[in-house]
């Protein structure tokens, strides 16, 4: 006869009530037909105004580029906090090594991943992707290098200082791109309002400053996540 854990029963009842409440709220939200003024504007005039086919990228890097700046700052802050909290040689990874089969295959895969990431970044305004997805793939490359060839091999090529330098360069590039909007006669991070090289929609070089800011954000996100992982997984 097991003793009944009253904490678990009480939390189960509480959580079930919460789930029913959430379900009720969600169905009442879904029922009403809300007018979507901003979404209709983005869908109807987005391609014409920003000359980017991917509307999500157009929102992220054109209409609300200032929010994206804050979003990139969150990753910067997280990387700084994690690197500050964990001093050198504190945590340790488990010591199982991959065989040469895995190491050779990953050496074969890595150029493929570089090509995918650069494709995603450069075609960010034409296809799903953009700076954030490409940056995640770049950080996946660094995770693979750390896991297969070891922490020392990674730090011999890219240590935390070098990666932080690339991250700072990415942030500065994004701010400089923002200043270009002021120089052209608009507000900070203005892109299509001031008409910077719109190009024809659907071509690689279009959308004004959007490809440049994609590359800046990708450098920032990729190196930021790499710094976070490098700080969390110290092997000694």
């Amino acid at each position: 006869m097991k003793k009944i854990n009253f904490d678990k029963v009480f939390s189960f009842i509480l959580v079930s009530l919460l789930g029913l409440f959430i379900l009720r709220v969600l169905y009442s939200v879904a029922g009403e037909e809300a007018a979507r003024f901003t979404a209709d504007h983005y869908i109807n005039f987005g391609v014409e105004e920003t000359s980017a086919i991917n509307i999500v990228t157009a929102i992220l890097f054109d209409y609300r580029a200032f929010d994206t700046l804050g979003e990139a700052t969150v990753i910067f802050t997280a990387a700084s906090v994690v690197a500050l909290l964990l001093p050198r040689h504190e945590a340790s990874m488990l010591k199982t090594e991959f065989t040469p089969v895995v190491q050779q295959s990953i050496a074969f895969v890595l150029p493929f991943l570089w090509i995918i990431s650069i494709f995603l970044i450069a075609y960010g305004h034409l296809s799903p992707g953009g700076g954030f997805s490409g940056g995640v793939i770049i950080s996946a490359i660094s995770i693979l290098i750390i896991f297969t060839y070891g922490y020392r091999y990674m730090t011999r090529r890219f240590n935390v200082k070098k990666l932080s330098l690339i991250e700072d360069i990415g942030a500065l590039a994004f701010l400089t791109i923002g200043l270009a909007g002021i120089i052209a006669g608009g507000t900070f991070l203005a892109n299509s309002q001031v008409g910077i090289y719109p190009g024809t929609p659907g071509e690689l070089l279009s959308g004004g400053l959007m490809p440049l800011s994609n590359f800046a954000v990708a450098a920032k996100v990729g190196t930021g996540l790499s710094v976070i992982f490098l700080s969390l997984a110290r092997e000694d």
């Binding site: 991943l113 995918i116 995603l120 296809s127 799903p128 992707g129 997805s133 995640v136 793939i137 996946a140």
Partner: peptide, 10 residues
Amino acid sequence: IDVALVYGVL
């Protein structure tokens, strides 16, 4: 297909 590629990598 691009989404599938990224999903495969991750």
